[in-house]
Design a binder for these strands. Structure first.
Lengths: 235, 235
DNA sequence: AAATCGGTTCGGCGGCGGCCGAAGCGTCAC
DNA sequence: GTGACGCTTCGGCCGCCGCCGAACCGATTT
């Protein structure tokens, strides 16, 4: 019953990846090129974690997604956002009904969470990324793969902010890790040093929690310190 | 159990049209923008006529195909070749394995049939289309929808070639129809007048059959007549 | 009229695969 | 340690749909 392979098999196989609503939702949710954890994608597609896991592994195996482990999360992102996005748009454009531009996501714009938040015990969101960027720009940190190197001047700078760098060095945890930030798609500072910095900023009253959520906001004094010491202007 | 509709339904629904090998083959076979009858598409996809009919009706309902009845045939073609072809290529490009350019069709190039053939009782292929084009160019015929109008000068011209135009007018069949030519994707002359012209060309020895097949070729004398009377140069 | 042919419809079969709950594993918090 | 949490694997259910043969329809031929 088997026949010689038709030259269109690849087309059909690839199309079938996009042919189920749950997977299309997932890809659409990743269309902005940012990385998101599996649970969030499951929620977006309204499927169980188990089902999402299957879809994600299938999409990864097909080479559409890249995956990055981050603690107990797994972040997925499109391997080739340009190409994939174009394809999704072309498919949507072929559909008969809709004539206006699709509402697309919006779902993920939930900006309060995006601006600043804690990620386990370090700072994330726009704030966390801005901080990491600034420290790199000032020569305090340099990125090496998934880790940061802390320069001497960086150590001095952080110490002068009141961060207990020596204590962080002695911790059994990784000292300075680059953590993929899901809302900004860039790295922020994690590890013992990130924790120490985060602790210090709360302790000094430069940032504060919004109730008991993970949402964090910068206080006026924090804003001043960051501007003076790191040249960072945070909203 | 029903949930509010996700914005990705159109993407998935459209993708599922391309997600089955048989349909992908059909669309690929039509990728050149030409129209082909259902049976040929069934053969290309290696499925039964019944299955092909389902696929074709589904693709038509989805607005991907246009259909044109022609006698007892139904010719299908892509509604928007540009768009669809781009989509197919983008999908194929996403597939991991193939690195060289796809062999695409070639299948349909079977050129002997393409050059000239009879279609029921009139001339088709490159020859038929060239003839129809020439007669339009000479002002003998003008296309009106799916039919041709024969001008007075056209009637005289055909008569002078020995075609029995009056007999054709009295026939109960349609006098001069435009028949969609599958290999050239353009119209050729059908109907009673097309039949009369075809008869005359065989009778005069301007064209002859290749054995008992539908393949037809122009003889030297035919070539000369066509060049002199219609300004047509046929290979 | 009968035969042929292109195409569609119908009924039914069979398999792929999407989905979930439960269980398992690793990471992190307390 | 214990518990919570993110994620994956496993087993099984179930529905969708691609496929065909047979019957049917309409156009064309003889």
């Amino acid at each position: 019953m088997t026949r010689s392979p038709l030259p269109d098999a690849p087309v059909a196989r690839t199309a079938s990846l996009l042919a189920v609503p749950a997977r299309a939702t997932i890809l659409l949710a990743l269309a902005d090129g940012r990385a998101r954890p599996a649970t969030e994608l499951a929620r977006a597609a309204r499927i169980s974690a188990a089902t999402a896991s299957e879809h994600l592994s299938r999409l990864s195996r097909a080479g559409l997604l890249l995956v990055e482990r981050e603690g107990r999360h797994r972040y997925f992102r499109l391997r080739d956002p340009e190409h994939l996005t174009g394809l999704l748009e072309a498919l949507a454009a072929l559909a008969p009904a809709p004539r206006g531009p699709a509402p697309h996501d919006e779902v993920f714009a939930s900006s309060a969470l995006r601006r600043g938040r804690t990620c386990y015990r370090h700072l994330a969101g726009v704030l966390g990324v801005a901080l990491a960027d600034a420290m790199v720009r000032e020569g305090w940190l340099s990125l090496d793969g998934r880790f940061y190197d802390l320069s001497d001047s960086g150590a001095r700078g952080l110490e002068s902010l009141g961060v207990d760098v020596e204590m962080a060095r002695r911790a059994r945890r990784t000292f300075a890790r680059a953590c993929l930030d899901w809302s900004e798609r860039r790295y922020h500072l994690a590890g013992a040093l990130g924790g120490a910095l985060c602790d210090r900023m709360f302790e000094a009253g430069w940032v504060e929690r919004n109730g008991d959520s993970r949402i964090t906001r910068v206080t006026p004094s924090g804003r001043r310190v960051l501007r003076q010491r790191l040249g960072v202007e945070v909203w």
